[in-house]
């Protein structure tokens, strides 16, 4: 069984939002930011994965820019949970540019998913360059 850590050292941190869920996410590279965003989503909803069967999925997404790909990426993971009850603990971003994302994700059926997430939103979403890499604040509609 795999559970996801919710500590600030993990590359994300929940922040206040009146009605929905918001979290800040950061990474040394865009690929790491995307990986941390996925791990943050799983930690917030309290995902626990079964030990097996292990599954592998290749994800291809297109978008108008990196922000659009980040939202599409999280929404793909939400969709894979709701349609196939899957979560992923190994994420490899194979390609990420301003128009497309390709990733290989490995995981298993979820044993626990405590919160319904309607969607990841674009609300005021900007991926900022920082001295240490990149950071963004995501709002999830719950």
């Amino acid at each position: 069984m795999t559970a996801f850590s919710n500590s600030p050292a993990s590359g994300f941190q929940e922040i206040d939002h009146t009605a929905d869920w918001a979290y800040q996410v950061w990474g040394k590279s865009l690929a790491e930011l995307f990986t941390h965003a996925a791990q943050g989503l799983y930690a917030l909803v309290g995902v626990e994965l079964a030990t097996e069967p292990r599954v592998v999925r290749t994800i291809h997404l297109t978008g108008v820019d990196s922000e659009s790909l980040l939202v599409a990426w999280l929404n793909e993971l939400i969709h894979l949970h709701e349609s196939e009850n899957l979560g992923f603990d190994q994420i490899e971003i194979l390609r990420l540019d301003g128009a497309a994302l390709q990733a290989e994700v490995r995981g298993a059926p979820t044993q626990q998913w405590l919160k319904d997430i309607k969607a990841a939103t674009y609300h005021n979403l900007v991926i900022h360059s920082t001295e240490k890499g990149f950071e963004a604040t995501l709002v999830l509609d719950v």
């Binding site: 978008g63 969709h79 674009y122």
Partner: peptide, 12 residues
């Protein structure tokens, strides 16, 4: 939820 997600993405 998915219909809104799809159209918010496409409308970008």
């Amino acid at each position: 939820h998915q219909i809104c997600t799809d159209y918010v993405h496409d409308f970008q």
